[in-house]
């Protein structure tokens, strides 16, 4: 984890309630795709954890959906604004586990962004990659071109069929011969992916206190013990995950 000040380079709406923000600042603590940053927003007490979509030499891109006060304030931030950010949080995806496998990167809604750099890293590693991007509707869809530009076979699903396959990402996965996945999205999506029995890595979301492992605010039960989503996660192997919680 590093802490620093980051400058907003751009902040624009790219889909329904969805914004892409580019920042400049120290990206040295970002070691893997799927890590996140924690942003201090003036006037709000807790920081806002947002996953990193793309990072490169002192620049990073995040994509967020306006769901409440914090993201509402963020959506109005202008170029040149300085932000206090904790960077390089969470474990991120271990893409080395995808070596020699037919990999799918699977994102649902605002779970799509971290899959961008994951796909990019997999390609750089020599993998052939299929992206499966799930959205509620056509209006909520974003980054399809960006994934295609990476040279990734891109399958889109929407809940209402207004774009791509009508259905969920699991319906998209069925049309491929992928034998390993990297996924981020809402819990019902992760649960149904987990049920396919195909192995992979799942990135979870939870309300957090600190974001760096000291408050135990985001602990979940796994098959390998109690884990903090922010520090031990947000990414867990499908073999570690259970959706059958006692607590």
């Amino acid at each position: 984890m590093t802490k620093g000040m980051y400058e907003v380079l751009s902040n624009k709406r790219i889909a329904q309630d969805t914004y892409e923000m580019e920042l400049s600042g120290d990206t040295s603590s970002l070691e893997r795709p799927g890590q996140f940053i924690n942003i201090k927003i003036e006037g709000l007490y807790l920081r806002r954890p947002i996953s990193v979509c793309h990072s490169e030499n002192g620049r990073l891109t995040i994509i967020y959906k306006v769901v409440g006060k914090g993201t509402g304030i963020m959506s109005k931030m202008e170029k040149g604004r300085m932000l206090d950010i904790l960077c390089g949080l969470g474990n991120g995806f271990d893409i080395s586990k995808g070596k020699g496998r037919r990999c799918a990167v699977i994102g649902g809604g605002v779970g799509v962004p971290p899959m961008y750099d994951t796909a990019k890293s997999l390609i750089e590693q020599g993998n052939e990659v299929t992206a499966i991007l799930g959205f509620a509707t056509k209006d909520a869809a974003f980054y399809i071109d960006e994934f295609e530009k990476l040279g990734v076979k891109t399958i889109v699903t929407t809940d209402d069929g207004s774009l791509g396959i009508k259905g969920f990402v699991t319906d998209g996965l069925k049309t491929t011969d992928c034998d390993y996945y990297f996924a981020c999205g809402p819990e019902p999506m992760l649960k149904s992916l987990h049920r396919t029995g195909i192995s992979g890595q799942l990135s979870f979301e939870e309300r957090m206190g600190c974001g760096f492992g000291v408050c135990m605010g985001c602990t979940c039960e796994t098959l390998v013990g109690y884990k903090r989503i922010c520090k031990d996660g947000p990414v867990f192997e499908s073999s570690e995950v259970t959706f059958d919680v006692k607590a």
Binding site: R207, C215, T219, A247
Partner: peptide, 30 residues
């Protein structure tokens, strides 16, 4: 960190909420 005789998972999530100038927590002595 608060310690008890036996191991504890604590409370189910969400364990955290924000409020004006502060937060609420219900970790439950994990």
């Amino acid at each position: 960190k608060g310690t008890t005789l036996e191991e504890r998972f604590g409370n189910p999530t969400p364990r955290i909420a924000e409020c004006e100038n502060g937060l609420l927590n219900a970790i439950g002595l994990q």
